[in-house]
Design a binder for these strands. Sequence first.
DNA 1: TAATTTATAAAGCATATGCTTTATAATTGC
DNA 2: GCAATTATAAAGCATATGCTTTATAAATTA
Lengths: 213, 213
Amino acid sequence: MRESVGNAPPPDTPTPGRPRRFDTAAVLESALELFWKRGYHTTTTRELERYLGVNQSSLYNVFGTKQALLDAALDRYETLTTGALLGPLEDSESGLQAIEKFFSDLAHWVTRDGRRGCMLINMMAEDGTATESIKRRTRDYRKRVKLALKDSLQRAVANGEVAVDDLDQRASLLLGMVLGYNIAARGGASKQELQALLGAVNAQLSSWRCAQA
Amino acid sequence: MRESVGNAPPPDTPTPGRPRRFDTAAVLESALELFWKRGYHTTTTRELERYLGVNQSSLYNVFGTKQALLDAALDRYETLTTGALLGPLEDSESGLQAIEKFFSDLAHWVTRDGRRGCMLINMMAEDGTATESIKRRTRDYRKRVKLALKDSLQRAVANGEVAVDDLDQRASLLLGMVLGYNIAARGGASKQELQALLGAVNAQLSSWRCAQA
DNA sequence: TAATTTATAAAGCATATGCTTTATAATTGC
DNA sequence: GCAATTATAAAGCATATGCTTTATAAATTA
């Protein structure tokens, strides 16, 4: 069942049996939305049924279990976040500017539609009962974000924008701020609070900039 | 009932009726422990019953509801955290040194007994369904931490340890790192990861220090 | 001792949870 | 049209949840 996930448009050779009535990809997108806003444990299968407009049995036929649905949603989330946040940072040619853009993008990403935070970072804190799969994902995510930030700093050095040697420490600082900004947003911090956090990061980045750059 | 919370040792004038068999304060401490480790929603009343060794009905007679028990536990938590973390920071005469100590204390506080994070910061992220009371608490906590950090920086300036003007921004940076460190610990970050975050903060603090100090 | 008051243990209650089953509807190749 | 195959809706299942009730135990004052 799991291998048919994402086959929203029916394949060229029509499959036998009654055709699926819903678009798997669209339903997955809605599930992601719900898990993102409400968290995993607080989202019930009945809620999913209502919000997605798909009967529980169909949902379970296609995705297996609630955990499996979350996993599929997280796969999708990683694609989205790569496209919107991490991809641009990783692919950019610029240094400091790419980091500034990343934090600016992050601010929008994390507060759109009534403040939800980054789903993966939310998962880190949801509770102590995370799956191994979840733990691995979140660990990888922290690692990936830090590396992307460090590489950008490296480029900034190469470009002569900044002149520092302790790149790893500075990347850690930025990673910490990414995590902190997220939990503040998730915790319902006001716009002023969030703006203050963002301002602190930007001031920090500016302070690293060489005078001549 | 609520007003009798915390009256662990029986008062001088013995109350009529069967005496309580458990120490209210000790039980509250255990409840705090459990909520802290496992989060609010994932802790069930049966778990509390087992872990505290107190029957549900007794628990409900003394504390009212699960939410009320959490509230009482959070009151206790605030006392504890004030004593161990915030109090020293707020009461210190020193500047930078107090902040360094605060982060060092925080690292222990947050990782003792198998890594639980700061309970109040955990509450920010538990899920989107926080009570108004919880939201207020967490908002106040962020405010208090930032203010304490800012005041310490102010003292550092007065002491001639650092020479900067944008104190609010630097306090925001440190607050962000407090939040970020916590969620990393809660999310199961390795000792290396946590050490890296802490190292970044300390490097930052050092960089603010005047050469002559 | 009797009457009163409070605490406790165990069972009970209504509802919710993740997941499955049963019956039926819609499509296929023949 | 007919068997085969898959999807769906609704009901069902075992268990868990927060909280309450009932019966009884242990202390008080008189």
